[in-house]
C-alpha cells in the first residue's frame, strides 16, 4: 500500500519535470530557428542587394530546402524528437510533414503514392488557413472596409 502511494506521488511529479524541460528546449530551438530566419534575411539583403521582401522569400525557400533535405537524409526526425514543437511550428515543420508523407508512400507509385499522399499531413494547415482567412477577410471587408 505504501509503495503504491509512493508510486503515485512519483508519477505525479515525473511528467511536470519533463514538461518544463520540453518547453525550455522548444523555446530555445524555436527561438534559434527564428533568429536564423532574421540572420538569413539580413545576409541576403547585404550579399545580393535585394529588398527585404525578396530576402524574406529567399529565407523561407532556404529553410524549406534544408528541412526537406535533412528529412530525406534521415536525421531531421531525430532532431524533431529532440526539439519537438521548436521545429514543428516554424515553416520547417510544414516542409518536414510534406517530405515525410511523400517519402513514406513512395513505394506505392508516382501518382497513387507521392501525388495523392504528399499533402496528407500538411493539408490540414492549408484547409484551415484558407477557410479562416476567407471568413476573417470577409469580416474585415464588412467592418473595416478593406486594406487601409
Amino acid at each position: 500500500m505504501k509503495n503504491e502511494k509512493y508510486e503515485k506521488i512519483v508519477q505525479k511529479h515525473r511528467p511536470t519535470e519533463h514538461r518544463v524541460n520540453n518547453s525550455l528546449i522548444a523555446f530555445l530551438v524555436g527561438g534559434s530557428v527564428g533568429a536564423l530566419g532574421e540572420v538569413l534575411i539580413q545576409v541576403f539583403c547585404m550579399c545580393f542587394h535585394v529588398s527585404r521582401t525578396e530576402a524574406s522569400v529567399f529565407m523561407i525557400i532556404t529553410l524549406i530546402f534544408f528541412a526537406a533535405l535533412f528529412t530525406a537524409l534521415g536525421f531531421f526526425d531525430k532532431w524533431v524528437t529532440f526539439g519537438k514543437c521548436g521545429l514543428l511550428i516554424p515553416i520547417t515543420g510544414f516542409a518536414h510533414s510534406m517530405m515525410s508523407a511523400s517519402l513514406e508512400y513512395k513505394r506505392e507509385g508516382l501518382v497513387t503514392g507521392i501525388g495523392t499522399n504528399a499533402f496528407k499531413l500538411a493539408g490540414t494547415v492549408i484547409v484551415y488557413g484558407v477557410v479562416s482567412a476567407w471568413i476573417f477577410g470577409i469580416i474585415r471587408l464588412l467592418i473595416g472596409g478593406g486594406l487601409v
Binding site: S23, A26, G31, G34, A35, Q42, K84, C85, I89, P90
Partner: peptide, 23 residues
C-alpha cells in the same frame, strides 16, 4: 536587436505550442 526579438518571438510561439502539446 531584431535578431534578439526574432529569437524571443519565435521561441515564445514554440513554447506555447509545446505547452499545449504536453498538457
Amino acid at each position: 536587436i531584431k535578431i534578439f526579438y526574432s529569437f524571443l518571438f519565435c521561441g515564445a510561439v514554440c513554447l506555447i505550442a509545446q505547452l499545449i502539446l504536453d498538457n
